[in-house]
C-alpha cells in the first residue's frame, strides 16, 4: 500500500518529539539533518551505519585546502538566470542577495556559489524530470557567481514553482533554490536549499523537516526584503549563508 501524507506526518511528529525530548535531556542543538531520516525514504539505503571516525584538528592532517575557482571560471552575467536565452523566462522575477560567512561571522571572499532550480512551473531542465509541467525555452535554471570582498552575492532569477515527487503519495516539494558553496577549507563544503517565506508546504516536506531544530529550519528560509525590491522590476529576498567552522586550529595557521 502506498505511503500517504498522513503516514509521513506521523513519522515527522515522532521525530520532532524525539528531538525535543533529547534537547530537554541536555543534548546539543542539531544544526544539520541526521543522515538516517526515514520520512525521506531515499535516505534509508544511503546513510552509513558505522559511526563517523573523528579526525582530530592536527594542522598536519586537516583538510586545509579547498577548491579554487577564479574569474576565468565564470562570466559577469552568470548570476542573472533571466538573460541566458533569446527571450525572457516566464515567472515572477526576483533577486536573492546575501552574504557568505564563516561561523565567526567573517566574510568568505572570492568563493564560488552555484545555484540551480526548477522553472516557474516547477519543472527542471533535466532529462529525467518527467513532471508534466511545461519547460520554458527561455529558462535553464543554472547560475554561478563569486562572492565579493564582504562575502556578498546576488542572483537575479525567477521564483521556482513547487513540484511533485515520489517519496509518498501526493508528495510536493515547497519552492526552493539549490545552492552549492565552498569555504576556505575543504571541511566547510555545503550543499543546501533555500526556501521562500510563508510556504504552506513546509510542514508536509520530509526534506525540510529533516532539519528537526526549529531555529535551524528557519535559517533555510529567506526573508522578503522590500528594500531589495526594484520598482517595476523585481521582488527582493535576503538570505545569508553560514558555513561550519573553520576550526580554531587553522585560523591560527595564519589566515
Amino acid at each position: 500500500m502506498a505511503l500517504t501524507q498522513a503516514d509521513i506526518d506521523r513519522e515527522l511528529t515522532d521525530s520532532r518529539a524525539a528531538y525535543d525530548k533529547a534537547r530537554a535531556d541536555g543534548a546539543p542543538a542539531a544544526d544539520h539533518p541526521a543522515r538516517d531520516f526515514a520520512p525521506y525514504r531515499s535516505s534509508l539505503l544511503r546513510h552509513p551505519k558505522q559511526p563517523l571516525v573523528a579526525v582530530q584538528g592536527d594542522p598536519e592532517t586537516v583538510e586545509l585546502h579547498t577548491p579554487v575557482f577564479g574569474h576565468t571560471d565564470i562570466t559577469d552575467v552568470d548570476n542573472d538566470l533571466t538573460i541566458q536565452h533569446q527571450g525572457e523566462p516566464l515567472g515572477e522575477r526576483i533577486t536573492v542577495s546575501g552574504r557568505l560567512l564563516d561561523s565567526g561571522g567573517r566574510p568568505v571572499r572570492g568563493q564560488l556559489i552555484e545555484l540551480w532550480q526548477a522553472n516557474a512551473a516547477g519543472r527542471y531542465a533535466h532529462l529525467r524530470d518527467q513532471h508534466p509541467a511545461p519547460l520554458d525555452p527561455n529558462f535553464t535554471g543554472v547560475g554561478r557567481t563569486l562572492t565579493g570582498d564582504d562575502g556578498s552575492y546576488s542572483f537575479t532569477t525567477i521564483k521556482p514553482g513547487a513540484y511533485p515527487w515520489r517519496n509518498h503519495e501526493n508528495a510536493w516539494r515547497p519552492a526552493h533554490l539549490h545552492f552549492s558553496l565552498f569555504g576556505t577549507a575543504f571541511t566547510q563544503r555545503l550543499i543546501t536549499q533555500m526556501y521562500f517565506p510563508g510556504d504552506p508546504l513546509f510542514v508536509y516536506d520530509p526534506i525540510l523537516q529533516s532539519v528537526t531544530d526549529e531555529s535551524a529550519r528557519q535559517r533555510l528560509v529567506a526573508t522578503y526584503d522590500h528594500a531589495l525590491s526594484q520598482p517595476e522590476w523585481s521582488l527582493g529576498y535576503r538570505w545569508d549563508i553560514v558555513l561550519d567552522g573553520p576550526s580554531a586550529t587553522w585560523i591560527e595557521e595564519g589566515r
Binding site: 560567512l101 561561523s103 533535466h126 558555513l243
Partner: peptide, 13 residues
C-alpha cells in the same frame, strides 16, 4: 559565533 546553515541533499537534478 553564528550557527551554520543546515545541509540538504543535492537531489537528483
Amino acid at each position: 559565533q553564528l550557527s551554520p546553515t543546515p545541509s540538504h541533499t543535492v537531489g537528483p537534478f
